[in-house]
Design a protein around this nucleic acid. Sequence first.
DNA 1: AAGGATTTGTTCGTATGTATC
DNA 2: GGATACATACGAACAAATCCT
Lengths: 267, 267
Amino acid sequence: MIFLAFLHDRRMTRAEALNQTGIERRSGVALWRQIADQIRQGIAAGLGGNDGRLPTEMALAERFGVNRHTVRTAIQALVQEGVLRAEQGRGTFVQPQRRLAYPIGPRTRFSEGLADQVNAHRSRLLEHSYEEASADAAAALELEPGAPVLRLETLSEADGRPISRARSYFDASRFSGFEGHFLRTGSITAAYRAFGVEDYLRRSTTISARHADSSDLEHLKLSPGAIVLVAVGLNVDREGRPIQFSQTRIAADRVELQVGGSAPANV
Amino acid sequence: MIFLAFLHDRRMTRAEALNQTGIERRSGVALWRQIADQIRQGIAAGLGGNDGRLPTEMALAERFGVNRHTVRTAIQALVQEGVLRAEQGRGTFVQPQRRLAYPIGPRTRFSEGLADQVNAHRSRLLEHSYEEASADAAAALELEPGAPVLRLETLSEADGRPISRARSYFDASRFSGFEGHFLRTGSITAAYRAFGVEDYLRRSTTISARHADSSDLEHLKLSPGAIVLVAVGLNVDREGRPIQFSQTRIAADRVELQVGGSAPANV
DNA sequence: AAGGATTTGTTCGTATGTATC
DNA sequence: GGATACATACGAACAAATCCT
């Protein structure tokens, strides 16, 4: 009470507030970065109560003795890292982490691999068109550049959450009408069967990661700054002929890729 | 250029400047995002001359008819994406892209896989210690929790640029002194041989991606907001016994992971 | 070698838009 | 409909790194 009365008498100077939290100016480290580090530490120590809700920006700004902008910069950095999630009008929350495992190997079948992890998984055809092969697609499918190819844009969802978005190319001279079979069956494997392809293998997969662009944000319902894993792959039939060249963008905060047998957990 | 001449004659009102560049206010898309998109497009069209240097923030702000802060926000987003690189006192530059291919498979050997892509590759031991196994490490290595393990922290560089940083755990009762052999030979494979392990396989690899934390930034010399690929893997000897459990953080803007045969290029 | 000019980085203050409760 | 809280944008000032004369 004495304390509060004291505060009531005069406002604490900025320098005093800074000393309280260990934030230092002109230290070579930007204030927002110091604050971001403190918040990250603080989360483990229970900052952001039972509901994961962080104190308001104003409250944090006062606590650290800085302007609200400086706190915002720190929060933005943590949102980028995936540690926090900010919701306009509601507040800022600690983002809990967990990921689906997406197996990758010669016999990769997207749906089968996820079947035992989620209740409702489906792959939806967003768009298709017949067009001339780009240099990349032609090389991968072993076609002449400019040869006709079928392009499919598909979206994969698990339990209602978007998981990945794929752009696939097929040799149009061999798989004309493929999209119809895919639409009816909802399965790439089943559609192949209609063209006499009883089995197929994944010959190669190249994995990289980048920030989501505006198209990714929209389709995968991600927050700006989110990360997508990009898997570029080639499927071949039993005779080793390329049948599908695809680029899949995967929401990195929802999925991890698994190469080889059942994998150990994270360190 | 027409644009600049126009500006020379008389100052353009803000609304006019916006019309010139296609930037629209109250369009539901933030100005800084529109500007970021335009800069990204512009790079392909030669924005950022021969030396890759972008116009100054002030120049861009005038061109787009916005405040310097708005341009800075756009530039920061592109720096996050790895498209640009900003240097205090010098300018902002287009960041050229190219990635090493890092093969992943049962017979993965980091050094060998990269040998034909870079001139100077080396793996350096940063730190080691003997400690009690965490739950994860114990489970992966099939040891009792708390059993003694050897932890190695290594840094891998190619042509002088940091590529990846790994934390590996070994059964201390079997591989005591492993770090000495690794230090002398600079090779994990060679160190294994000293313990009678003539061959080993990668049983599984789990791949995810996240934003680099401060430790990653420091060791891999990354910019804040950069992405790291995280590969958690388990190596086993010829008898199938686990011998090494590792978590590797890989600079995503420098490396892509390759599963299966030689992969096609990006879409 | 010194010092001013240039350019990016940080901070504060303020105003307004927009989404949520 | 009003209050609250996050999002965007602008202006000013100064710091820090680099460049140039």
